[in-house]
């Protein structure tokens, strides 16, 4: 008889643990669902932001893939540009040379062309110093 009572208590105890585990699992499930909802919301907001960016800056490739560019003054058909060496000498050097002068604004390149009486502005990628759309 006492063994039956003991087994009954054990079953009750396991039942309690099982209920607690179930409650814990339900809480975990709720948290996972809430996290997924938040994730979906962030995804939607990121999509909306990207669409807005593409609307205001319709570049191709997309904004995240844009490369930095600058203006140089091209002086000949061999992709030589106005350059100023470390010693202050003004030279015509190949486009990829580190001393080639670069400008953020095309107006500066145009002014230099006018003042030197040579060359034309050329848009280049600053990472490779290749001409953009040659």
């Amino acid at each position: 008889m006492s063994q039956i009572v003991h087994l009954g208590k054990m079953i009750d105890a396991h039942g309690d643990r099982l209920r607690k585990l179930e409650a814990g699992l339900l809480g975990l499930k709720d948290r996972v669902e809430a996290h997924l909802r938040r994730h979906d919301d962030l995804d939607r907001r990121a999509d909306a932001m990207e669409r807005k960016l593409n609307d205001t800056t319709p570049f191709d490739p997309p904004l995240s893939g844009c490369r930095e560019t600058a203006w140089a003054v091209k002086t000949s058909g061999m992709n030589h540009c106005v350059a100023v060496t470390g010693g202050g000498s003004i030279r015509q050097l190949p486009l990829g040379d580190k001393y080639v002068r670069r400008f953020n604004d095309i107006a500066d390149a145009e002014t230099l062309c006018r003042l030197l009486g040579v060359g034309e502005p050329m848009l280049v990628y600053t990472d490779t110093m290749e001409e953009v759309n040659p």
């Binding site: 106005v82 100023v84 202050g88 003004i90 002068r101 400008f103 500066d108 002014t111 230099l112 003042l115 030197l116």
Partner: peptide, 16 residues
């Protein structure tokens, strides 16, 4: 250069 401004511009643009 015909103006001082032009001389200043070329100095500025070439970092002379």
């Amino acid at each position: 250069f015909s103006t001082k401004r032009d001389a200043e511009d070329v100095i500025r643009l070439l970092h002379l």
